[in-house]
Every structure is written in C-alpha cells, then in structure tokens.
C-alpha cells in the first residue's frame, strides 16, 4: 500500500509540475492545488499506513496522530492559498486584460 500511494504521489507531482510550467494562470493554480494533495499523501505515507486504529483514546492502538494534525493545518492553508491566487489571477485579468503569463511580462523599461 505504501509503495503504491508513493507512486501515486509521484504521478501527482509530475502532473502538478507540468501544470506549473504552463503559461495559463488557471492551469498554474490547479497545479498548486494538486501539489498540495501530493504533499498530504506523502506525509501520510511516511508515518506508515493502517498500522492501528483511529487516533482516538479508547479505540485501541492508534495510528500516528501527528501527521494528521499537520495535514489538517495544511488543508486549510491550502484553501487560503488557492483563494488568494485565484483572486490575484482574476484581478490581474481585470486590470491587464490577459491571463497568459508570457503576455504579462510588461515593458522592460518600466
């Protein structure tokens, strides 16, 4: 299971990287969201999978609770990042009239 999920995370990272390299703002933003997913999976995997029960006292020998706490924080922050970049993208589009990164370079003399 661990190896399988690690490879899945690798696939997600590859896809995210390709999206981040594209010149369309929406693709870049989706890329960051996918990268977040991959990070969550890998944190889970490293602590070992399905080694116990849910991390609640009285439910038996629990799995490692620390990665879960880290991921919970990360999920909410990931949402904030997506929100801010989306708004940044559409405000840029409103002001400049394009969402293509190669057209957003501006004039070198400015």
């Amino acid at each position: 299971m661990e190896t399988l999920v690690t490879i899945l995370a690798g696939v997600l990272v590859t896809v995210a990287t390709y999206l981040l390299l594209s010149k369309n703002l929406i693709r870049v933003i989706i890329g960051t969201a996918i990268l977040t997913h991959a990070a969550h999976l890998i944190i889970m995997v490293v602590s070992g999978l399905k080694t116990g029960s849910v991390p609640i006292v009285g439910e038996g020998d629990p799995v490692d609770p620390l990665p879960q706490a880290l991921i919970l924080t990360s999920i909410v922050i990931g949402f904030a990042v997506t929100a801010v970049s989306l708004v940044l993208a559409y405000r840029t589009y409103q002001e400049v009239g394009t969402d293509k990164l190669d057209e957003l370079r501006g004039d070198p003399d400015e």
């Binding site: 690690t6 995370a9 690798g10 696939v11 990272v13 590859t14 896809v15």
Partner: peptide, 12 residues
Amino acid sequence: AIGVGVVFTAVA
C-alpha cells in the same frame, strides 16, 4: 515534470 516526479518518488 517527469524528472521532478522521479526524484520525488525516489526520495520518498
């Protein structure tokens, strides 16, 4: 992209 993915998986 493939390079990053491979390095990532290998390290993990």
